[in-house]
Amino acid sequence: MPPTNFFQSIWAKKIRIIDRFYFSLILLVLAVLYYRSRYISVHVPFTEYQWEVYTILFFLVSFIVIDFWGDFILKCWLTVSGLVGKLIFYGLMIIVYFLILSPVFFIVHLFTKKKEETSSNWSKKMYINKDYQNMG
């Protein structure tokens, strides 16, 4: 897919309120996990980080409530995660292609004899699976 299509398709995406709600919920869960892990060993009274919690809650609620803000944040997230995802995916493709497929290719070619030129190109050794229930 050309890069312009990638960005266009993300920014043209329709984001529903429920999506924004879920997104905020996920962030909230992450925030809770973060604080739990940070303050798990020492007991800190709630008042100590009250303002941080309130700021986070403020942002989360505003994601849901304010149309533009929520859309913007979500689309930014989609762009960044999409790019990272694409990088990982193509990385994987390159790894599979060059590290797994290529050595196999050389091994297979070592063991297969080159087909000799003949006076016909009909193939009689057909693989036809008469079992209609089989996908191959």
């Binding site: 897919m1 999506d19 879920y22 997104f23 997230w77 989609l78 995660s81 999409g82 995802g85 694409k86």
Partner: peptide, 11 residues
Amino acid sequence: SVVGSFIYTLF
């Protein structure tokens, strides 16, 4: 799944 809407459809 729920997370689905936050992952860009890769292909």
